[in-house]
């Protein structure tokens, strides 16, 4: 087991270095110049000397190889430098946004898991019943509808309904307050995005739970358990669900990792100052250092989530552990 963990951890190093090299090159292939966006993006004229000073200040006038080596050396030391846009350490920029994205990701996962697993299981157990049809329609609706669209519609609905009831339209707060400072304000801001993101996430997981459960319920060991006279509840919880969870855990892991940096549009719709919004801003501004750090963060989240899923596999499935 320890050897398995060590092997998986060591594999993350070349993955991260490869991603670092790739993102460095890709960012420089995009035409444009952060200093021009910064000084002239508003359409006003600026001093050409300021442009040259800006290039020198952020170091993009140096040879690529020097910039690349500096980036790799920094990445090895987990020092991604300062944002070319704001001049603040990249770590400060990300740390300001990470709690928001993390909270949404955790809440959306809670919403998704608490909907997907029970409904997916019921749908499989009551295959082809009216209940199964309702759950499947609900799931397909979630997969087919983009979560940002649901977000926009839900805000408009809240505005219209509250306006109709109270005479004054109401919408969730638009400035983030941490949970420990004001739980009500915090939850009223994050509830809608967590539900809208969680719905799509639940829909995907529900479909997976249903098909995995249908598969498992046809296995010989389920028939054996039934033949032994075990009660249905025990068969489902102990034998069927635990085995069906393997692909669901993988899916939940991948989705969770995606939510950390992937809620690009949802964060904008709900005005959440999260990592997804920062990502868009960094790419639009051509902020190389910040984009590189964000890509590395996303890669790291994916790599370590996959690692955690692999370890969870080993716990769920003894065959992996012993092989």
């Amino acid at each position: 087991m320890y050897q398995y963990i060590l092997k998986r951890v060591l594999l993350t190093i070349p993955t991260l270095l490869g991603a670092a090299a790739l993102v460095f090159l890709l960012m420089r292939l995009i035409p444009g110049d952060i200093c021009l966006v910064r000084l002239g993006g508003g359409g006003s004229s600026f001093d050409p000397r300021a442009l040259a000073n800006c290039h020198a200040e952020i170091g993009i006038d140096r040879p690529f190889i020097v910039q690349f080596l500096e980036f790799i050396w920094g990445a090895i030391r987990l020092d991604f430098g300062t944002s070319m846009w704001s001049g603040k350490p990249v770590i400060v920029e990300i740390a300001a946004r990470l709690p928001v994205s993390l909270e949404i990701a955790v809440l959306a996962t809670v919403v998704a898991v608490s909907i997907a697993i029970p409904l997916g299981t019921i749908s499989a157990l009551k295959q082809n019943s009216w209940l199964d049809v309702v759950v499947r329609v609900f799931a397909i609706g979630g997969i087919a509808t983009p979560s940002f669209w649901i977000g926009i519609v839900s805000i408009l609905l809240v505005l219209d309904i509250s306006g109709w009831i109270t005479g004054t339209p109401w919408m969730p707060p638009i400035d983030y307050v941490p949970f420990w400072k004001n739980p009500i304000a915090n939850l009223s801001m994050v509830a809608l995005p967590a539900i809208t993101v969680g719905y799509r996430y639940a829909a995907v997981s529900m479909r997976m739970t249903r098909s995995a459960m249908l598969e498992v319920m046809k296995e010989d060991y389920i028939r054996t358990a039934r033949a032994k006279g075990l009660i249905n509840k025990l068969i489902i919880n102990r034998h069927a669900l635990k085995n069906a969870l393997l692909p669901i855990v993988t899916l939940i892991g991948i989705e969770f990792a995606f939510l950390i940096g992937g809620l690009v549009v949802t964060e904008q719709v709900f005005n959440l100052n999260g990592v997804g919004r920062l990502f868009v801003q960094a790419v639009q501004n051509q902020d190389y250092t910040l984009t590189q750090a964000l890509v590395m963060l996303t890669v790291a989240v994916f790599v370590f989530t996959n690692l955690a899923v692999d370890l969870l596999y080993a716990w769920l499935d003894p065959r992996i552990r012993f092989n």
Partner: peptide
């Protein structure tokens, strides 16, 4: 708030 719809909704709801 970079997104215009957020700003419009915020004025509409008096946020």
């Amino acid at each position: 708030a970079p997104k215009q719809s957020v700003r419009v909704d915020a004025i509409r709801s008096d946020r």
